[in-house]
């Protein structure tokens, strides 16, 4: 769900300003941020009088959830399995597509600059529109069910994976590429023999992280009608069966949380090897 190295990678551009100057601009942005925060609060005109009654009501609703009602468990688990399937399929398709496109997009190995720029722009477009909106679009286009879910996940995964794949490919040592080029290797040979082996473990790490995110996404797609466990949840909530909703919520939590645990373990392993 959370992308650990993103901040580091994005912030890694060389920075020429002196360090004391950095501290000063930090303060400046802090002041601007504080002012914008106050401005936003005023503009939002939140109705704070609803806050306390809301919390009380929330407490009551929470009480209605206990004990969780697991009577529909076969149904819920089947829906959960469908969510997992949507996530797996969407991620795998996304990986396959992004894998090929990333080689055309990475600055250091892209055969054509225009194509590389086009692919990058496309990726940021795909990425900028939230998966749930993609799901809405595909539902209208192909109807309800798991298919729009798979498509939405695929589109979102392609968008984010192209970017991070290309980043990892660009981190490959320029010397390796140069050496191979000097031997007269073709583009395909350079990519397969020089770039891919070096970047493979990084790409793999991104895939794992993407799957973590996609599984979380797939659990909620049902809320708009794209299949999976999300539908069970929004259905239970809308029909005020809060005890059933809690059970579904618990299943979703376990799904997302267990993937987080596994990917944490993998990340640790990767870090150790690095």
């Amino acid at each position: 769900m959370v992308n650990l190295s993103k901040v580091n990678i994005r912030g890694a551009k060389p920075n020429r300003a002196s360090k004391s100057k950095n501290n000063r601009s930090l303060k400046m942005y802090g002041v601007i941020g504080g002012l914008f925060f106050i401005f936003s609060l005023i503009q939002l005109q939140l109705d704070y009088s609803r806050l306390l009654p809301g919390i009380l009501k929330f407490g009551k609703t929470a009480l209605l959830m206990f004990p969780p009602d697991a009577s529909e468990w076969t149904h819920v688990l089947l829906a959960a399995v469908e969510s997992v399937q949507v996530a797996i399929l969407g991620t795998v398709l996304g990986i396959i597509l992004a894998f090929f496109l990333a080689f055309l997009a990475a600055d250091n190995i892209a055969p054509n600059r225009v194509i590389s720029w086009l692919i990058r722009s496309l990726a940021s477009l795909l990425r900028a529109i939230p998966t749930l909106i993609w799901a809405l679009i595909f539902i209208v286009a192909v109807g309800m069910g798991p298919l729009p879910g798979v498509l939405a996940i695929t589109v979102g995964a392609v968008g984010s994976l192209i970017k991070v794949f290309a980043q990892s490919l660009e981190e490959v040592d320029e010397g390796v590429i140069e050496a191979l080029r000097s031997t007269g290797a073709s583009w395909l040979q350079i990519v397969l023999q020089g770039v891919l082996p070096v970047a493979l473990s990084a790409l793999f790490a991104w895939c794992v992280m993407r799957f973590e995110g996609d599984l979380a996404e797939s659990t909620i797609l049902g809320a708009v009608g794209a299949g999976g466990i999300g539908y069970e949840l929004s259905h239970a909530m809308r029909s005020y069966q809060f005890d059933q909703a809690l059970f579904v919520g618990f299943v979703i939590f376990m799904m997302v949380f267990s993937v987080e645990l596994v990917s944490n373990r993998l990340k640790l392993k990767m870090r150790k090897r690095a």
Partner: peptide
């Protein structure tokens, strides 16, 4: 924090709408 994080945002909203009503307060 794992509970806050691993229950997707849409579920939190659905939950909160039931007690706070629609609007920006729930969104925030």
């Amino acid at each position: 924090s794992a509970m806050f994080r691993n229950i997707p945002v849409i579920i939190w909203t659905i939950l909160l709408v039931a007690s706070f009503g629609l609007g920006k307060l729930v969104g925030t």
